[in-house]
Every structure is written in structure tokens, then in C-alpha cells.
Design a protein around this nucleic acid. Structure first.
Length: 478
RNA sequence: CGGGAAGUGGCGCAGUUUGGCAGCGCGCUGCGUUCGGGACGCAGAGGCCGGGGGUUCAAAUCCCCCCUUCCCGACCA
């Protein structure tokens, strides 16, 4: 008898996370250091997220493009902050075609450089703007420390790169895409997020402002689940992208970039999972309803499968993603445990008793209860029930986030509080990098997010006591 | 990059101290019994023991060199 249970979340969260990711069939370690193989179940979640994002990109006027994976190192080196920020993480190709390359090629860590060096040729007039483009691709960043989905040396993402004729328009674009990210995180992934600005030290290299979405994982650590950057004219100046404005004057273009990576798959695992495994938001769940047939004799089998297929057909026709688990090599109990691990929101158990009564047993993975309902009632109500569960999951995660958000009354309270109870800690900050650094040195927590508009100016900084200019949210993070 | 651990059938591991037929559990294949919360019996298949060199009658095991991966920290989506 192989029970082979998962570790308990509370006892060892990282081990629990890795076990769920591997055993649910989402991903495993790849051949190269820090790389990963994304398996069908994990990829399906990423695809669902991709669709949700891409639909919204299109709806906001963006188009998809593709730029090269490799480009000359000197292209990357044009923007000072950018190259300084990424240099330690960049993989470089020095040999190809059996020869040393005259000019080394970098594997993109992000594509601002190659895209803006190309935009130079695409932009001459204000009539060429705005340029609203997005790219779905992989990037490579040679991180010291890796973890499946959350930080791998190669990862999948989307990166939007826009060029505008005015500062205001670019700034608004950055905020608009931040809002798209918030919406996808909350409405599709049921993952509540904080939005706002990053402090200067946490900014993207080359950005004027960085706007993140920050989610809280079940172990109280924050996860940056997406970022949108207002790049000002930094890249236009570095790559010489100028246009003639309506006044006939030459002006540098204004830029944004924004990205969400497959890290969010890990975020979903760590936001909603419990001791039994995953709990998937219905809107992105690869399988929303799984049907487990129960039978002894061949006779029962055919009757049970007949009802199962009827229910399958009924649900499919109302666009519910449903699967009949008719594998003969496993008994029902095994299948129950397996689909719970995989986080399928609803499981139907159909056995001889149910065939006789025209009913199904409905097991709810999200709320953890079971009920018996007439088969036809379930078919007509399934879509609504899934919507309801989507809401339950979001409400659960929001309640958890709220319960783990604390007010930092003093530096001592912040320092000791974070050590004792991980989570978001909120308090006034004077804006000095020294105070920020003191907190991170003593607590390992960083400022995750600052409000878009000042909410509490003048309150004493929780570190130094000087009048605050920001209300900061601190947390330890992934 | 510092600290730790580990490379042995698909997966998880034991065997290494003290050299002597390469094992166990899960999984896989076949047959049978089972099937409403992780089934069982019987019979099977499957291994250059991370790589290279050395010591020895004999190396998974001892010695040297190399490679790789994971975990914990500093860096980051």
C-alpha cells in the first residue's frame, strides 16, 4: 500500500511546493542548471493565462511580434543602467558554427535593447506612434538560485514594448497595462494583488517608474507576479529613436515595457494549494469537472459509463471542460486522490446507485464537501457552480491576504513582527534609501509596493521618525 | 559566488564505514481476484552504479581528477 502523502504545508512549505508541482504533472527539473521541463498540465495553466492576457492585449490595441533570441552584446550595452542591471545574469554565446565568434552574442534576458535598436528604423514621425507591440517568448537569466516556475534560468513570458509621442500617453499606457495585469491575476487566477510603484532600488534597470502586482503566498511571502514600466525617454536616447512632432521638432520617443511570466503558475500553486495539493481556479483549470465512474461487473461498467458520457456531453455543450476518467487500471479511491492533487474544482462520482437514481455525487475540491444531486440539475447548474467556486477561491485568498496584512507601528514592531509572522507589513516611510536598506538588512523584507498616490503624508517614518512621504508595504519575497 | 547534500533500472532509495553474484519499494508487462477514499496474489521485463584515470586476483565500494544536479544564503520575474 503506497500512501505517499504530500508534506504538510505548514511543516515545510518549499518541499510541499516542489512535490505538488512535480506530482501534479506540472514541471520537473530540466537538463541544464536551473532549467525546467514544463509538462502538459502545467503548460495548460500557462496557456490559459496566456489567452486571458492576450485577449486583453488585443482589446487594448496591441499586436504580437517576434524579435531574435540572440543579438550582439554591444546592442545590450547601450543603455547604462540596463546593461549594469543585467550584465551579471546574461548568458553569452561565444562559439558557433565550430568557430569562435568575432562578436559575442547575448541570449536575451529581456528585449528592450534589440527592440529599441529596431524601433530606430520604424519611427520617424508622430504619425508612426504609438507603437503598441507585444512578444510571447522565452528569456534567459543566469540566476544564482532557482526554483521550478518561480525562478528558472530560462523562462516563458510576454513582454510588451510600446513607443509614444508624449510622456503622459506612455505613463498612462504603463498604468493601463498594470490594470490589465491586476484584472487577469484577480479575475482569472483568483489571486488578489496589491498594485502601486516600486521604490528606486527595486526598479527595473532603465525604468523611470516600475509598477508591480504583488501577491501573497500561503507561507506569508510576497510574489511579484507582473510588472509594468514607464521607461521615459531612456531607451529612445540610448538607441536614438526620434520623431518629428506636430510642431516639426525632433523629439525622443516615450516608452513602456511590461511583462508577466510563467511564474504565475507557481503563484497559483502557492496561493490556493492546501495539504491535499492544488486547488485550481475554474476559469483557468485545464479540467473543470472530472467524472470518476465506479463499477464492479462489466454490466455495471457499461451502465455507469453510459450515464458518465451523457453527463460529459451535456457539460461539454455548455462549454464546461470535462473529462471522464475511464482508466481501468486504477480504482476509484486512487483517482479521487489524484484529481484532488491536481486541483480539479469538481469531481463527479457515478456508480450503480447513481445510475439507478439518475443522480451524481458532486465532490467540491474548493470547499471540500460532497453532495448528491440529480444528473440533469448538475448539468444545467455546473457553469454557475464553477463561477461560484471561482469567487470562493478569490474570497479565501483575499481573506488570507487581509489576515496577514499588519500595521507596523514602530521599527521594533516591524522587525519583530515580520520575524514572527510573515506577511505584508504596512507603515510610513520617509523615502530615504538608508531607511529602506536598514529594514531589508534587519528583516530580509523589502518594500514590495508604494501607493500610486500618497495616502498618508507627514506620518513619522517607521524607521527614522522623520515625516513620511509614502505608505510602504514591506514583505519577504520570492 | 559562499555553505551543505547528492549522482546506483522510469521514480524514490539501500548497499560504500570493513572491496567479493547489483538489491529493495513504487511504477511498468502478463494472468487472475478486486473496484463508493490511495487494492491484492502469482509470474516477468528493465542497470556501461555520473565520467576519466589509478590501486587490487577482484571496485558501486579505496585513491586522484573532472562533470552535473538539488538544497540553504547574497542576486533576480
Amino acid at each position: 500500500m503506497a500512501t505517499d502523502r504530500l508534506p504538510k504545508q505548514a511543516e515545510n512549505f518549499p518541499a510541499w511546493y516542489l512535490e505538488v508541482v512535480k506530482r501534479a504533472g506540472m514541471a520537473e527539473h530540466g537538463a541544464a542548471r536551473g532549467s525546467q521541463v514544463i509538462k502538459p498540465y502545467g503548460f495548460a495553466l500557462w496557456e490559459a493565462t496566456q489567452r486571458a492576457l492576450d485577449d486583453r492585449f488585443k482589446a487594448t490595441g496591441h499586436e504580437n511580434v517576434y524579435f531574435p533570441l540572440l543579438f550582439p552584446e554591444k546592442v545590450l550595452a547601450r543603455e547604462a543602467d540596463h546593461v549594469e542591471g543585467f550584465a551579471p545574469q546574461v548568458a553569452v554565446v561565444t562559439r558557433a558554427g565550430g568557430e569562435e565568434l568575432q562578436e559575442p552574442l547575448v541570449v536575451r534576458p529581456t528585449s528592450e535593447a534589440i527592440i529599441w535598436s529596431t524601433y530606430k528604423n520604424w519611427v520617424q514621425s508622430y504619425r508612426d506612434l504609438p507603437l503598441l507591440l507585444n512578444q510571447w517568448c522565452n528569456v534567459v537569466r543566469w540566476e544564482m538560485r532557482t526554483r521550478l516556475f518561480l525562478r528558472t534560468s530560462e523562462f516563458l513570458w510576454q513582454e510588451g514594448h510600446t513607443a509614444h509621442s508624449t510622456s503622459q500617453e506612455a505613463y498612462e499606457e504603463a498604468l493601463r497595462m498594470l490594470e490589465v495585469y491586476r484584472e487577469v491575476a484577480e479575475d482569472e487566477l483568483a489571486m488578489p494583488v496589491l498594485t502601486g510603484r516600486k521604490s528606486a532600488s527595486e526598479r527595473f534597470p532603465g525604468a523611470v517608474e516600475t509598477f508591480p502586482i504583488e501577491a501573497l503566498m500561503r507561507d506569508g511571502k510576497a510574489l511579484q507576479a507582473g510588472t509594468s514600466h514607464f521607461l521615459g525617454q531612456n531607451f529612445a536616447k540610448a538607441y536614438d529613436v526620434q520623431f518629428l512632432n506636430t510642431e516639426g521638432e525632433l523629439e525622443y520617443a516615450w516608452a513602456t515595457s511590461w511583462g508577466v511570466s510563467a511564474r504565475v503558475v507557481g503563484g497559483v500553486v502557492m496561493t490556493h494549494g492546501d495539504d491535499r495539493g492544488l486547488r485550481l481556479p475554474p476559469r483557468v483549470a485545464p479540467v473543470q469537472v472530472v467524472i470518476v465512474p465506479i463499477y464492479k461487473s462489466e454490466d455495471e461498467r457499461s451502465q455507469v459509463l453510459e450515464l458518465a458520457r451523457r453527463v460529459h456531453k451535456g457539460l461539454s455543450s455548455s462549454s464546461v471542460r470535462v473529462k471522464v476518467d475511464d482508466r481501468d487500471q486504477h480504482r476509484p479511491g486512487f483517482k479521487f486522490a489524484e484529481w484532488e492533487l491536481k486541483g480539479v474544482p469538481l469531481r463527479l462520482e457515478i456508480g450503480p446507485r447513481d445510475v439507478a437514481a439518475g443522480q451524481v455525487v458532486v465532490a467540491d475540491r474548493i470547499r471540500g464537501d460532497k453532495s448528491t444531486v440529480p444528473a440533469d440539475d448538475f448539468i444545467s447548474r455546473a457553469a454557475d457552480l464553477l463561477d461560484e467556486l471561482q469567487g470562493v477561491l478569490f474570497a479565501d485568498a483575499s481573506a488570507f491576504r487581509d489576515a496577514n496584512t499588519h500595521e507596523a507601528e514602530s521599527f521594533a514592531a516591524l522587525r519583530d513582527g515580520i520575524a514572527e509572522q510573515a506577511g505584508f507589513w504596512v507603515g510610513p516611510w520617509c523615502g530615504d534609501a538608508e531607511c529602506e536598506q536598514k529594514v531589508s538588512e534587519e528583516t530580509k523584507a523589502t518594500i514590495r509596493v508604494l501607493p500610486l498616490v500618497q495616502t498618508d503624508p507627514g506620518a513619522p517614518c517607521v524607521v527614522c521618525g522623520k515625516p513620511g512621504v509614502e505608505r510602504a508595504t514591506w514583505a519577504q519575497s520570492y
